[in-house]
Computed example of a mutant assay.
Amino acid sequence: MARGVLIAESLRADANLDRLDLCVDRIWRSDAGVYAGRVFRYPRGDLAGRAAAADHGRAVGVPEEQLDWPA
């Protein structure tokens, strides 16, 4: 089983990864913040939406240098 962070620029919000042999700790996208049990979707350029996703990342222990995706 693979374990780690999935970086998925084009992953749909409703994508189902259950059939893959993966243990995903986090998924990163530039227009969404996806965490275990929580998804933040916002249009590109929405600074408030991006800030909410980054704030949640901080609250669950994501290092600051991993919260620098484009707005």
Rank of each mutant, 00 (worst) to 15 (best):
M1W: 05
A2Q: 09
R3N: 08
R3G: 02
V5P: 01
L6H: 12
L6K: 12
I7G: 03
I7P: 00
I7W: 05
A8C: 12
A8L: 04
R12N: 08
R12K: 14
R12C: 05
D14S: 11
A15I: 09
A15K: 13
L17Q: 07
L17G: 05
R19Q: 13
L20W: 12
L20H: 08
D21L: 07
D21K: 11
L22E: 02
L22G: 04
L22C: 03
L22A: 11
L22D: 01
C23D: 10
C23V: 14
V24Y: 02
V24T: 09
V24C: 04
D25S: 08
D25L: 09
D25C: 01
D25E: 15
W28K: 00
R29T: 10
R29C: 00
R29I: 00
S30F: 08
S30V: 02
D31Q: 08
G33N: 03
G33M: 06
G33K: 00
V34R: 12
A36V: 08
G37H: 04
G37A: 07
G37F: 04
R38G: 00
R38H: 12
R38Y: 05
V39M: 06
F40L: 03
F40V: 02
R41F: 00
Y42S: 03
Y42V: 05
P43C: 02
P43H: 07
R44D: 13
R44H: 11
G45Q: 08
G45K: 06
D46W: 02
D46T: 04
L47S: 11
L47C: 02
G49I: 11
G49Y: 05
R50N: 07
R50D: 04
R50L: 06
R50K: 15
A51T: 13
A52E: 09
A53V: 06
D55R: 15
D55T: 15
D55H: 10
H56A: 05
H56P: 11
R58T: 15
V60Y: 03
V60W: 01
V60I: 15
V60K: 04
V60P: 04
G61E: 07
P63H: 10
P63L: 14
P63G: 13
E64W: 05
Q66I: 01
D68N: 14
D68V: 10
W69S: 02
W69L: 15
P70V: 10
P70T: 12
